[in-house]
């Protein structure tokens, strides 16, 4: 392909990934200058335009620990949360405080009450002990389910958007843009039941974030995600954090723990398990 075609495709991919216009111009200019200096074609020097654009986009989103966002007020304060099942305490005396601009991970093996805890924080379940204070609107993403099988994604956006009085076109646009960050084209006419498991979870995630809530509670939302989408998901979590949201993710996968602000481990301590 000609340099011109290469540049056009590269710029289009950058635009699709929501890179700022000024940055797109810079990237194009740099590629042109390098091609001129080196005497190579852009394809030779940079490879496939879409792949290079993906690299640039991910470099832009890779945040260094040094560049911390401003930590704001407390958005979620759960204190002394306990839940009993029959006569056994599934979780007991659990605290979690998450401020605006912070992320928290809730970890623990299966059965340790992670989903229960999140449901309590969202107000879906009543605990046997403890209180939750919420400072802002909440968006919740379940592990699965949570959609209407026979509705299309755009109809889901319209339905949820109506809750805050968002006009339908705007809700659909927001939904579509959110979906694009997860590499999903939400304009399809596929009903939710026809979506693959991973795609349906993308829908769930978009629905959680649709009203731009200040607090996001995500219960292992990445079921069925391939590795690329899983990375996109965490990139989105950091972006939400940097925009001042408080994000809580229930997860049993441990790789991203060094980048979250708080890790809540619900694995019961030995002394408690014996109590």
């Amino acid at each position: 392909m000609t340099d011109q075609e290469w540049l056009v495709r590269m710029a289009l991919e950058l635009r699709r990934r929501a890179v700022a216009e000024s940055r797109i111009n810079q990237t194009v200019g740099e590629a042109v200058a390098h091609a001129r200096d080196s005497g190579q074609t852009t394809e030779r020097a940079f490879g496939l335009p879409e792949a290079y654009a993906a690299q640039v986009a991910s470099s832009l989103m890779a945040h260094v620990a040094r560049a911390r966002p401003r930590i704001g007020e407390v958005r979620l304060a759960a204190r002394g949360i306990g839940k009993r099942y029959r006569r056994r305490w599934v979780i007991r005396d659990v605290d979690l405080v998450v401020r605006a601009g912070q992320t928290a991970a809730v970890v623990g093996a299966n059965g340790t009450g992670k989903s229960t805890f999140l449901a309590i924080c969202a107000g879906f379940l009543t605990p046997d002990a403890g209180q939750v204070t919420l400072h802002g609107a909440v968006g919740f993403c379940p592990q699965d389910g949570g959609t209407l099988d026979y509705l299309r994604p755009a109809e889901h956006f319209a339905l949820l958007g109506a809750g805050r009085g968002t006009p339908r076109a705007e809700a659909r646009r927001t939904g579509r843009d959110l979906a694009a960050t997860l590499q999903w084209n939400a304009d399809s006419d596929d009903q939710a039941r026809h979506l693959s498991g991973g795609t349906r979870q993308k829908l769930n995630l978009v629905l959680a974030a649709l009203g731009d809530p200040e607090i996001l509670l995500l219960d292992e939302p990445y079921q069925g995600f391939d590795q690329g989408t899983y990375l996109d998901f965490w990139d989105q979590v950091w972006q939400w954090r940097d925009r001042g949201k408080a994000v809580v993710v229930v997860t049993h996968l441990l790789e991203n723990l060094d980048r979250v602000d708080t890790v809540l481990d619900l694995t019961p301590r030995v002394s408690e398990a014996e109590a």
Partner: peptide
């Protein structure tokens, strides 16, 4: 029953 899992989220969303 189809809408059961969606309703709590709709509540959170303002319904």
């Amino acid at each position: 029953s189809a809408a059961r899992s969606l309703e709590p989220r709709l509540r959170l969303g303002g319904y």
